[in-house]
């Protein structure tokens, strides 16, 4: 018998991933490219896919409007959708791995609420603040939330169950402050904040792309290189410790990465719920539980899901545009139901 895996070895380097990973990643990449092109083509001013590709490659399509519509209006929002999805997908994969809980998601354990509160506070209290401050403030909010959750639920390595319950409680506190702000803010600011809270990439520009990009550049590679340690943590504290993992330190690092990605994503596009829940799950179906393959797969799945959600939100009830957060929630809840039912069948074996 041979262990079924793709092995790369040279003198001092060796590496193994599941055989399913490369084709899955390639396939996902292709689907996402198509989705991006479709998304860019849709709208009040439809553009043919061929012209889109030409414009993206900087070739002349014979229509000067194309460059403006694509490059200035539609491409940045689509790219934001893609990037945000990557961040949520990875973050969800990390939190599910850490808590060994298939229902964990940065939204459910309260990270997103903390980020939202910080960002709403900035929008409502300081409406004139430049846009790149938002990811930073949301990260601070998410991070404080994570520190609170960690200190309340993780001291002396307590259980994942507690983690979720504490997250629910802290979300409620953050939510109370958020609705306090929404009640007293100027109605225009509140309206702005609401669009943003529902999770939307409406009106996002290159400015958002570039204020978000550094977060991805720093934290995605960190997530990928540390996924090996996530495998160990996934087996529970005692086993991980027995295997020689520096559990507290590793977990701290994983949490930092998960929080940073979720926080920055929330700041850029609001709380697009359930992506962090769905993407890692679908990923496990496709490539198994090994996080070295799972994290990149969840990232691409997350990106694809948000781009598709945005496409759906724009086309379903055109000209009214649904925020993609509403679309992901509408898809996410039934998926959640499916997970619960499947869990029950598993446990009855």
């Amino acid at each position: 018998m041979k262990l079924d895996g793709l092995v790369v070895r040279s003198q001092s380097i060796s590496f193994q991933i599941d055989r399913r990973v490369p084709p899955v990643l390639l396939g996902l990449g292709a689907v996402i490219l198509v989705a991006i092109v479709l998304n860019v083509g849709r709208g009040e001013y439809p553009i043919a896919p061929f012209d889109i590709v030409k414009t993206l490659l900087n070739l002349d399509t014979g229509n000067p409007d194309h460059a403006f519509v694509i490059n200035t209006l539609r491409l940045p929002r689509t790219i934001v959708a893609f990037m945000v999805g990557i961040a949520f997908g990875i973050s969800g994969g990390i939190f599910q791995g850490l808590t060994s809980n298939p229902l964990a998601d940065p939204g459910i354990i309260g990270i997103n609420e903390g980020a939202s509160l910080a960002a709403v506070a900035v929008i409502v209290l300081f409406p004139s603040v430049p846009i790149y401050i938002l990811p930073l403030s949301a990260f601070v909010g998410a991070f404080l939330m994570a520190v609170l959750i960690y200190s309340l639920a993780w001291n002396k390595g307590s259980s994942p169950i507690l983690l979720i319950l504490i997250g629910v409680g802290l979300s409620a506190i953050a939510g109370a402050f958020t609705s306090f702000l929404l009640t007293f803010g100027q109605i225009e600011d509140v309206s702005n904040a609401l669009v943003w809270l529902a999770g939307s990439v409406y009106g996002r520009t290159w400015e958002q792309v570039f204020s978000f990009l550094p977060w991805l550049i720093i934290f995605v590679p960190l997530a990928l290189t540390n996924s090996r340690h996530l495998n160990a943590l996934n087996l529970g504290d005692d086993i991980a410790r027995g295997l020689g993992s520096r559990v507290e330190w590793q977990r701290g690092l994983q949490v930092l990465v998960g929080v940073a990605l979720a926080g920055a994503a929330v700041a850029t596009a609001g709380t697009i719920g359930f992506v962090g829940l769905i993407a890692p799950h679908l990923g496990r179906q496709l490539v198994g539980t090994n996080h070295q393959g799972l994290i990149p797969t969840a990232a691409l799945l997350g990106g694809g899901i948000v781009v598709l959600a945005d496409l759906l939100g724009r086309t379903l009830f055109a000209p009214i545009e649904l925020p993609c957060g509403v679309v992901t929630a509408a898809v996410g809840a039934p998926y959640f139901l499916y997970l619960l039912i499947r869990n029950r069948q598993k446990s009855s074996l």
Binding site: L3, D4, G5, V7, R9, S12, I13, S14, F15, Q16, G97, S100, P102, T225, R228, N231, A232, N234, L235, L243, G244, S245, R284, G288, T289, N290, Q292, N343, K346
Partner: peptide
């Protein structure tokens, strides 16, 4: 964790011998 295969679990036993260049 749900869905973990036997070989993936057993391979975890090699964790203390691995580093980020030598993973398998």
């Amino acid at each position: 964790p749900e869905g973990l295969t036997v070989k993936d679990l057993v391979a975890q036993g090699r964790y203390p011998y691995q580093n980020w260049l030598q993973q398998w």
